[in-house]
């Protein structure tokens, strides 16, 4: 299932310049994904999941964001040392593709959807080799009729794979003329069309009903299993994470706090935040429960473990030093001074 490491993010720190000061949004995040692995990324809204995804893709806003520390190794090369042209031509959209959280703003409102698909295929078609992509010039932008036809076929196939009936009609429409879920499926289709090695999917199924969601999840699962594609799957829906993830990583306020295999994650949460998160699953005990307190501000975040203001177990150590990694076996690791351990064992999950 999981092969060699494809992406390794180590100790990544990202801050944004704001009027109130510098917001330290990512504070030493670590993450690894192997080829063919589906890694779930969960965490409170605003905790930095999309920022992490954008850092890997190199599309943080240049005038506001600064990566102050860390490395991002993709297939052995450090992306932070690569120049923008290389990232844009060779990596982004070809080897790593992205399903953004907000599909609306990623489409241009003035071109038809079909035009936008063909523009994508013109530059990022799987038929283009890395060398060709790297050497791209205005002269090499010729888009021969044969290739155009093959690409158009690919587009049609992909649209029916993502459950969009009547691809021709949809391609003639403009982005505001399709439903939210259709836009999201179009975005997924664009990400899959270029046959990437890594798909970064930022809440890709939020606008889909459960039946279509099930088919999309099936498709992603099949890609991972058959084509060895790695998927970084951000979601708030733990049910979805349970469906397809091999491993699940939890972030809290810009820090990675726990990572575990899917079954272990639900059965033996070890970080107090994870535990709270699972306890707030709807239907668990009668209603929907929140976690008291708010996500902290990023301009002057709490020191040490950023969860300490909301944590019942917090001690002085929690307030001053960020906990190191405690390995709990079989890939389960937690960063907490007082991990819950096995005494809190949840009822066994089948």
């Amino acid at each position: 299932m999981t092969g060699d490491t494809l992406l390794r993010v180590s100790d990544l720190k990202v801050s944004f310049q704001t009027e109130a000061g510098s917001a330290k949004v990512l504070d030493g995040v670590n993450l690894t994904i192997g080829r063919g692995e589906i890694l779930g990324l969960v965490g409170e809204s605003g905790c930095g999941k999309s920022t992490l995804a954008r850092s890997v893709l190199g599309i943080l806003p240049k005038n506001a964001a600064r990566i102050t520390d860390g490395t991002i190794l993709f297939d052995g090369e450090n992306l932070l040392e690569r120049n923008e042209a290389y990232l844009a031509r060779v990596l982004r959209g070809r080897r790593i593709s992205f399903v953004p959280q907000d599909p609306f703003s990623s489409f241009s409102p003035v071109f038809s959807i079909g035009d936008q698909f063909m523009e994508l295929m013109k530059w990022k078609s799987p038929e283009i080799t890395d060398a060709q992509a790297a050497a791209r010039t205005i002269l090499s932008s010729r888009y021969g009729r044969a290739r155009r036809r093959r690409d158009a076929e690919r587009v049609m196939e992909m649209l029916s794979a993502v459950q969009l009936p009547q691809p021709e009609a949809i391609l003639r429409k403009y982005p505001h003329e399709v439903s939210g879920g259709q836009r999201q499926r179009l975005m997924i289709a664009m990400a899959l069309l270029t046959e990437p090695e890594l798909i970064i999917a930022d809440e890709p199924t939020t606008a889909l009903d459960v039946t279509i969601q099930a088919q999309i999840l099936k498709l992603l699962k099949a890609l991972a299993a058959e084509r060895n594609v790695a998927v970084l799957f951000t979601t708030h829906d733990l049910g979805t994470a349970w469906e397809i993830c091999d491993r699940i990583m939890v972030m809290y306020a810009g820090q990675d706090v726990e990572v575990a295999g899917s079954a272990d994650f639900f059965a033996r949460p070890n970080h107090p935040y994870t535990d709270r998160l699972l306890a707030s699953l709807p239907g668990a005990e009668g209603g929907l429960q929140g976690i008291p307190g708010n996500i902290p501000g990023f301009v002057s975040p709490p020191g040490g473990c950023r969860f300490h203001p909301r944590c019942d177990l917090a001690s002085d150590a929690c307030r001053t030093t960020r906990p190191g990694v405690t390995a709990l076996g079989s890939g389960h690791a937690v960063r907490c001074h007082h991990p819950l351990g096995t005494q809190f064992l949840k009822e066994a999950v089948t």
Binding site: V42, G43, E44, S45, Q101, G180, E203, T206, A207, H236, L238, R276, L277, S280, L281, P282, L288, Q289, G290, I291
Partner: peptide, 14 residues
């Protein structure tokens, strides 16, 4: 229109 999509469980509760 889908007021809770994209929100984590805790914020959903709020």
């Amino acid at each position: 229109d889908e007021p809770t999509s994209g929100l984590d469980l805790s914020v959903q509760a709020t």
